[in-house]
């Protein structure tokens, strides 16, 4: 479904990604783990079109998407819940969700998606008319994921959904991510620093180190890998 081939990304003169290649198949949950500054967020930003690769190829369902503007890529069915959530604090929770369906002209489809998202995260329905900025960190994360789902994606990119959130809510959010994959059939590429929880949820994983993919395997194998155990599972 999504294929990255030898992707190089630079910030100015600094190379952030060195020949990154990875693939995500339809229906999978794939995780990308690595420490701070390894290039995880850059990889997602590049897929979403916020960053252009200097070399390499990105294809989504057979179509080249590298170099496309972000808003076009959303239209093709790739949504991202960005790192740090970045919800619109001055809009209400409901308005935040509706922003996600900005490109969808069919009102009944928007309503359908809204119902689905609010069934998934009932808290968002309870707080529908509150300004987004008044939510707790965990609720904001639910809102960011819900907002991304409102675009009606086939592939959902999640950037650090556990960052800065109470452990009990992390469990809840990861249960919902699994439901999104199972019940809605949405393919998921998950970026996480918390390798424990990411490797439990995903089927396959990639390990990124200073801009290079150093390992790729099925998650149970990665969990047993001594290198991974030492570096990421402590």
């Amino acid at each position: 479904m999504l294929i990255l081939e030898d992707v190089d990304v630079y910030y100015g003169n600094v190379q952030a990604l060195h020949g990154v290649s990875l693939r995500v198949e339809e229906g999978e949950i794939v995780t990308l783990i690595g420490s701070n500054g390894a290039g995880k967020t850059t990889t997602l930003r590049t897929i979403s079109g916020l960053q252009s690769p200097r070399a390499g190829k990105i294809t989504f369902c057979g179509q080249r998407i590298d170099g496309m503007p972000a808003e076009k890529i959303v239209g093709l069915g790739i949504a991202q819940s960005p790192e740090g959530r970045r919800i619109f604090t001055n809009l209400t929770v409901r308005e935040n969700l509706q922003m996600g369906a900005y490109l969808e002209r069919d009102k009944s489809k928007v309503r359908e998606r809204l119902e689905r998202v609010e069934a998934l995260f009932p808290r968002l329905q309870e707080r529908a008319s509150q300004p987004g900025g008044t939510l707790s960190g965990g609720e904001q994360q639910m809102l960011a994921i819900g907002r991304a789902l409102m675009t009606g994606p086939r592939l959902l990119l999640l950037d650090e959904p556990s960052l800065g959130i109470a452990p009990i809510l992390v469990q809840e959010i990861f249960r919902e991510i699994e439901r999104i994959n199972r019940e809605l059939g949405t393919t998921i590429l998950l970026v996480e620093q918390n390798a424990h929880i990411a490797l439990r949820l995903a089927q396959r994983g990639y390990v990124l180190e200073t801009g290079r993919i150093v390992l790729e395997d099925a998650c149970p194998a990665l969990q047993k890998n001594p290198q991974v155990r030492e570096a990421y599972l402590g």
Partner: peptide, 14 residues
């Protein structure tokens, strides 16, 4: 309003 607050997040929504 969304763009005014966070251009990048708005871009990610199309």
């Amino acid at each position: 309003l969304a763009v005014a607050q966070d251009e990048r997040a708005a871009g990610l929504l199309g």
